[in-house]
Design a protein around this nucleic acid. Structure first.
Lengths: 348, 348
DNA sequence: GTCACCTGCTAAAAGGATTTAGCAAATCTC
DNA sequence: GAGATTTGCTAAATCCTTTTAGCAGGTGAC
């Protein structure tokens, strides 16, 4: 008789079906044909599993099989479309492989990041994706030690495999469009990000390359890497404005957070500003609705994540290799009738 | 001798320390004082655990202790500040309790929702929060059967405990501010959400109550519940506009997604529109920067999640009870110098 | 009748940690 | 020095599932 008041175990199920736990297990896991279990017996077990509401204990199963069935993702936070997109595609790809996604955010706090990584490793995730992590090398090393496959997204690290957006090409294309049709003497300003950070430096290079292409002096343009806080970007713009109003007509904003700071600044000073044209290395649906000439680019989050899983699925380990994914221009209000709003009709 | 090439187990550790696994376990779990383990032995075990890099197998531990240490959250998606905020606070509260947060998004697909709930229950999460789920009753019932504590957030269900934003009061306050100073004959329009859905109906009631208060006829105002897609909201506005331009000066928008649709409409027709004043039952930093007179309200995500965990922590089970959390007005551009941007300085 | 083979199942051993009951040796008591 | 007590530890059971090796009983071949 099955113990009452408790979740049924495979023993209860076996007892009810008049078989051994081994038989029940074989039936439930589909291996019963190879093991010459009588179809009648199999049917009986299946029926009873249903009617008893038997659910295998996942922890016992994982222990025996030595598989955690967990896939980990560490992101800075969920408050923009880039990270939200990474998370959602990561969930989808995990589910497709029967893995349970374990998503955690660091709030850009190094201690939290370390703790989360420790937790993920302690849980023996089968796969770990580090997105937007500035110093992934240490966590990469821990993973290697623990035998866990690990990929860096967006900011590549020294160890293992990385997948990044084409920062140079994206910034170059954005800048080309940004400057298109503007007088040759028009200067440009670069706002946001951190100096010496991989992505930011690559974007600055792309920005300069496009300026040089169009016969402009790349060194004449101002680079203001004021970090990732909206407030800092807003303050930086305000400081430039206060120093005599030398706001260039064209602006390349390095991230959506910096763009948020710019939008605040713009809101406060719109009437005093010249006509601006702004490009942003990121996308947000509301930002795209501001009445400013805007070009926005969207990281191809789907492909970024897909490439991580493709590597996990079996491509040979490629140490130090960086795979570059092109970005997509999503909104371009400066070119009438052009590539507008690929994603505007997206359901949310 | 410890087996080489494998992760050390507690047996390896015990062997290295010259003790039994039982002793090692007692030392590692802090119960060694009660069990009269010699401090020298304890010290030796601890040292060796460190130097061997011993990490307990979490699955074996969870099996023995019959605890999953998992806390589940199901949300529709991560693409707005409300759900992103719920997720982040859920993560924080989980970590504070030594639980591992398992966050999953349904993309508003009922089948995915059911699958996720099944997974969560199969994993025996110790606590499950259902946010923005339209029909939580079935999942509530499954949880009850499995002995899992379950809370509904935002959309309450028939079973168990729910925590919701003060929809009626919030909409009433928003509407009061929205209509403040406007001529008594000014009408208002309600946009977005679904009829017969708890939150939407409560907000419509609040909206009407505030209109009645100010001597207006609540039945004269148009209610357009066009769902949660931006496109539908945009189309609805465009249809009203096309039917003769009868766009009222005041608009209450039911969600940030509907507001996204409104913003698209506004972008396309700004020059042909009268001066608008818009209130939104939700908040987004970019939306708050649009050059429209705007009032936004922010769900108190922190408190919503805190109350869920407070209940989980031990308050008596309260069946069918709904706890109501006040919302906060965050941005009010219609009242110069008023409560502006409580959250604008937030780091992102 | 013996041997080989097939059929349908089961016993038992992992997998790694935790915990209870209790053992042997040392120390104390008088 | 016998009995009681304390000290410091361990054996073994337990959590639940999966899987391997193999057992009994039946059938067929000759």
């Amino acid at each position: 008789m099955a113990r009452t008041g408790r979740k049924p175990t495979i023993k209860d199920l076996a007892q009810a079906a008049g078989t051994s736990p081994a038989t029940a297990s074989l039936v439930l896991n589909g291996g019963w044909k190879d093991h010459r279990i009588n179809p009648d017996t199999a049917e009986r077990v299946l029926q009873l599993a249903q009617s008893l509401g038997y659910r295998p204990n996942q922890r016992a199963r994982a222990l025996r099989l030595n598989r955690s069935s967990l896939a980990g993702l560490i992101v800075p936070h969920h408050r923009n479309r880039f990270f939200a997109g990474l998370t959602e595609h990561f969930e989808a790809e995990s589910h497709m492989r029967g893995l349970i996604p374990l998503v955690a955010s660091t709030q850009r706090d190094a201690r939290i990041e370390q703790k989360l990584a420790d937790t993920m490793i302690a849980q023996e995730v089968e796969f770990l994706v580090l997105a937007g992590t500035e110093e992934p090398a240490r966590i990469n090393a821990l993973c290697r030690e623990a035998g866990i496959r690990c990929v860096n997204v967006d900011l590549p690290g020294g160890l293992g495999f990385s997948v990044v957006t084409d920062n140079h090409g994206g910034a170059r294309d954005l800048t080309r469009r940004l400057m298109g049709g503007l007088a040759p003497e028009t200067g440009a300003l670069f706002l946001g990000g951190r100096r010496n950070e991989y992505a930011t430096e690559a974007r600055i290079d792309g920005f300069r390359a496009a300026l040089a292409e169009s016969g402009r002096d790349p060194d004449a343009s101002a680079i203001h890497c004021c970090g990732y806080s909206p407030q800092a970007a807003c303050d930086t713009m305000a400081a430039i404005f206060a120093r005599g109003g030398e706001i260039p007509k064209a602006l390349l904003v390095n991230s959506i957070t910096a763009f948020e700071g710019f939008a605040r600044f713009w809101q406060a000073h719109a009437s005093d500003l010249p006509d601006l044209r702004v490009a942003c290395f990121d996308w947000d649906p509301f930002a795209a609705c501001l009445p400013i000439e805007t070009i926005m680019l969207r990281h191809d989050v789907e492909t970024l994540i897909a490439r991580c899983f493709a590597w996990f699925d079996g491509a040979a380990p490629r140490d130090g290799e960086i795979e570059v994914i092109p970005a997509r221009v999503v909104v371009d209000d400066t070119q009438p009738g052009a590539t507008v709003a690929l994603y505007r009709s997206q359901q949310t």
